[in-house]
């Protein structure tokens, strides 16, 4: 892990106007600061309603901030003005959202190739990479299925590799496995770790599940209730590669879990 921060968040804030008639506006996030190092797997846990999605939307530049700044490699992202937003920061920040957001009219393969097509980077090499990723997550044979013909877990995998295929330096993940059953979820977590080991991308992974946050991350941030701030920071020095199923009984895991548990109200 290098000390150089790849992405920095400084005093970030977001407020929403309240219903007409009431004058106080609500801060969902306020004065939030943290940074992510190159190649780091950062997980963020917080109670639901702590603005986790909003935070990622702002970092991904699809939502404006009400204050503060986001820096990518020391370059300040234009995040305070809706007109100058640059979603994805020129394809350098990938975003795996809570819903799979696959394009329903494209087949699975076409969906995975979609970013390459829009970026004009579809060639033999990238196509081979896409095929490799499809095989890695066990989707081979389903290339020509439409999203509605795939199971929830399969759609999730497709949306995951759709972001991995164009290899953005930072990937944001917003509870990507939230809606899945426990079994599928564990399998996908293993898949994700395996994929991460291939490339060691920088990942910011948001979840409300403490177990997931510890099992996946190098470091875990705990957020407070709205307005969200950093309540605590925990280094997860569990050895890698990790065994997702076995880790739960690891005494070290239990110790970290309890520390985080206390901070999440």
């Amino acid at each position: 892990m290098s000390a150089q921060a790849l992405l920095e968040v400084h005093d970030l804030g977001k407020r929403f106007a309240s219903r007409a008639g009431r004058d106080s506006s609500l801060w969902v996030i306020r004065d939030l600061s943290f940074s992510v190092a190159d190649g780091e797997f950062l997980t963020i846990v917080g109670p639901s309603g702590s603005g986790k999605t909003t935070l990622l939307n702002m970092i991904a530049q699809i939502d404006v901030a009400s204050g503060g700044e986001v820096r990518f490699q020391s370059e300040v992202a234009p995040i305070n003005d809706p007109k100058s937003l640059n979603p994805g920061l020129s394809c350098r920040i990938g975003y795996v959202t809570q819903e799979d957001n696959l394009l329903p009219w494209r087949t699975m393969l076409q969906n995975v190739l979609f970013p390459l097509v829009v970026q004009g980077r579809l060639n033999d090499e990238t196509r081979a990479r896409a095929e490799m990723l499809i095989r890695t997550v066990g989707l081979a044979g389903f290339e020509n299925h439409y999203p509605h013909e795939l199971s929830g877990g399969m759609r999730k995998r497709a949306s995951l590799i759709r972001t991995l295929v164009y290899d953005p330096p930072v990937i944001l993940m917003d509870e990507p496995f939230g809606a899945l059953d426990a079994q599928t979820r564990t399998v996908l977590q293993e898949d994700l770790l395996r994929l991460w080991n291939l490339g060691r991308k920088t990942i910011i992974f948001v979840t409300h599940d403490i177990t997931e946050a510890i099992a996946l991350g190098d470091r875990t941030l705990v957020l407070t209730r709205a307005p969200a701030r950093v309540a605590g920071e925990h280094k997860i020095d569990l050895p890698r590669p990790r065994d997702i199923r076995g880790i739960l009984t690891d005494p070290k895991f239990i110790e970290i879990y309890q520390r985080i548990r206390e901070q999440v109200q």
């Binding site: 530049q61 699809i62 972001t163």
Partner: peptide, 8 residues
Amino acid sequence: NMARVMGA
């Protein structure tokens, strides 16, 4: 949004 993030 997804398409924008991917550079469309």
